[in-house]
């Protein structure tokens, strides 16, 4: 009973911490951009709100109802993209997706030059082995894409 549960490296401490105590949860008073993501399979939902400073993302908040993976992915995404410009944020999103798609044990693509590193988002790499859960981590990025879809760069 006292033995800790085997989480198969999927639930990195960082993911559990952020799911429990998100740092970027909430709403902005006057968001400039809003995007939503929904997973019809499980009912998870996330809403991402952005404030821009020219083409830089200056403030991010998310409102997420979902599993630990989805919550932590939203929170760590918000942290990672704050301060990036739109092209950089989109580049991180592409890299994040690529990391989750395993090809012969290797991520499908490697970082293209000039894209900021994934940093803490690498905590999600073990999801590769849990195909059914990849959508959970990608949901906030879907919402971000929607939020940015009407931005002219």
């Amino acid at each position: 009973m006292t033995m800790p549960v085997d989480s198969g490296a999927l639930y990195d401490r960082l993911i559990v911490e952020r799911a429990r105590k998100p740092l970027f949860a909430g709403r902005l008073e006057n968001p400039e951009k809003i995007g939503e993501g929904k997973n019809p399979l499980c009912g998870d939902k996330t809403r991402v709100e952005l404030q821009l400073d020219q083409d830089h993302i200056s403030l991010v908040r998310h409102h997420t109802r979902g599993c630990a993976i989805c919550l932590a992915a939203a929170d760590l995404m918000a942290e990672r993209i704050t301060g990036l410009n739109i092209a950089q944020a989109e580049g991180v999103g592409r890299q994040f997706s690529a990391m989750l798609v395993e090809k012969d044990g290797q991520p499908a693509t490697s970082a293209t030059a000039g894209t900021p590193a994934l940093e803490q988002l690498e905590a999600f790499a073990p999801l590769r082995a849990h195909r059914a859960r990849i959508r959970c981590a990608e949901l906030p990025w879907v919402a971000l894409k929607e939020a940015l879809s009407h931005v002219d760069v």
Binding site: V5, L10, Y11, C42, C67, A68, I69, C136
Partner: peptide, 22 residues
């Protein structure tokens, strides 16, 4: 405080197959 999908994934890691979802 624990989402059904997290329950199912963690049970699975421990050999227990249950269903989670709607």
């Amino acid at each position: 405080d624990v989402h059904p999908h997290d329950i199912a994934t963690l049970l699975d890691r421990n050999g227990v197959a249950v269903r989670a979802g709607h």
